[in-house]
Amino acid sequence: MKFWRTPLDVERLKVPRGEVHIIKDRCKGCGFCVEYCPRGALEMSDEFNAKGYHPPRITDETLCVSCNLCEMLCPEFAIFCVLKEEPEPGEEKKVEG
């Protein structure tokens, strides 16, 4: 992560980890979650759901920081994220940009 000035407590801070759940058959493929995910963790997939729409797909699970923006924007109640309680030690240092 880029900092303008390194925070004093950067060692103690942990980047939260989220787990994205997509209810594919409820999705209508509007693309709000893909467009507005601040971490770019989602993309539209080529697969069809039961209604013939393209649901989103997770590009990289480690990118999600559980901001819940996709959950709040989704007009179909088809995506949500759950905060992962304990990230593996050292994992947060891998996050960049």
Partner: peptide, 25 residues
């Protein structure tokens, strides 16, 4: 479960609103 499910009548979901409608939001 989706966290909103306790506040929605799930037997009526999926709703009738078009894809990219803003009412669901």
């Amino acid at each position: 479960e989706h966290p909103m499910e306790s506040l929605l009548r799930m037997d009526r979901i999926p709703h009738i609103w078009c894809p990219t409608c803003g009412i669901g939001t």
